[in-house]
Amino acid sequence: MTKILVIDDEPDLVRFVRGALETEAYQVLTATNGHDGIRLALTERPDLVVLDLVMPGVHGEAVLSALMAQDPGLRVLILSATGDVQLRISCLELGAVDFLAKPFAVRELIARVRSRLQENGASKRRDILQVGDIVLDLQARRLVVDGKPTVLSQREFLLLLHLMRNPGAVCSRQELLSEVWGYDFDPATNVVDVCIGRLRAKVRPDLILTVRNVGYQLQSA
C-alpha cells in the first residue's frame, strides 16, 4: 500500500488531510512537529511527504533540508499558507517536488498527490536512461557523462530526467517550470535558468542548447 506522511502542527488540518487520503486508499502516517516528522520519514520511508512550513520548534524548511540531506530521493509536497514567493522558491530548490497553498481544495490536493506518486512510480520502472554520451542511473540518481560519474541534486535530477525523456525537443521554460517545479506560471522566477547552468557544468555546456526566447534542448546525438 502506498504510504504518505503528513507533517503539520494543526490537528484539524491533519485529520482533514488524513481522511481525504485514506478515502483514496493510501496508508497515512502523521506527525505534528518537525522532529517527529524527520524521524518518521527516515524510519518509515514513505512514498510521499506532505509538509507544512510554519510550525513551532523546527521550521518546515529546516525539516525539508534535513530530509533531502538524508534521503535525496524522498518526494516532498509542501502544504503551506505562506505567501512568501522567495520561501516557496527556496523549498523547490531544496528538493520539494510541489507546493500547494492553503486554503486548498481537497480535489486539487488529491490530484497533486496522485501526479507526484505517478512520477515516482514511472521513474522506478526503468533503472537506466541514456541519450548519447549521457547515462542517468534512476535509482542512484547518478549521472555519467563520457564515463565519468557525478551526483545530482534532486532538482537537477528531475530537470535532466525531463530533458532526457524529450531528446532533441525544445522544452520551454514554462514547461520545465511546471513539470519540474510544479509552477503553473511565474514569469518572475529564474530557477530554470539557474538549474540549467548547474547542469551544463556537469553534462558539458554543448549538450544543452539555449533556444532563444523559448527554452532549452538536449542534444540527442
Rank of each mutant, 00 (worst) to 15 (best):
C171D: 00
I128F: 06
D84Y: 14
P11L: 10
W181N: 07
R107S: 08
L94I: 05
L87S: 07
L21V: 05
P149V: 10
E61F: 10
R126E: 14
T82A: 07
R125N: 14
M55T: 07
S65N: 11
E175L: 13
A41V: 06
V76R: 13
I4K: 07
G37H: 11
I128V: 13
P56M: 13
E179S: 13
G182K: 09
G121T: 02
V54E: 11
F157I: 07
D36G: 02
P187M: 11
N213W: 10
L138C: 09
L158C: 04
V180H: 04
L160S: 07
V54A: 14
S90W: 01
A62Y: 09
A188W: 11
V135Q: 15
L67A: 10
N120E: 00
W181F: 14
V113H: 11
K3G: 00
M1K: 14
G147M: 06
G57T: 08
E61C: 07
I128Q: 15
S80I: 09
S115L: 08
R204H: 09
L152N: 00
G197Q: 06
T43L: 02
S80K: 12
F104C: 11
I89D: 08
V14P: 05
L117R: 14
S220C: 05
A169Y: 00
G73Y: 04
V54Q: 13
V76K: 12
K202W: 05
R212T: 05
P46D: 08
D127F: 12
V135H: 08
K102N: 12
L51I: 08
M55I: 07
T30Q: 09
A96N: 07
T30W: 07
T2W: 01
I196W: 08
D133M: 03
V106F: 05
L207F: 00
R116P: 02
E175Y: 08
A105S: 08
H162K: 15
L53D: 12
E156L: 02
R204Y: 04
A188R: 15
D133H: 15
L67M: 08
G34H: 09
L152T: 03
E108L: 15
V203C: 10
Q217N: 03
G57R: 14
T189H: 03
Q118Y: 09
D146T: 06
R173F: 01
Q86K: 15
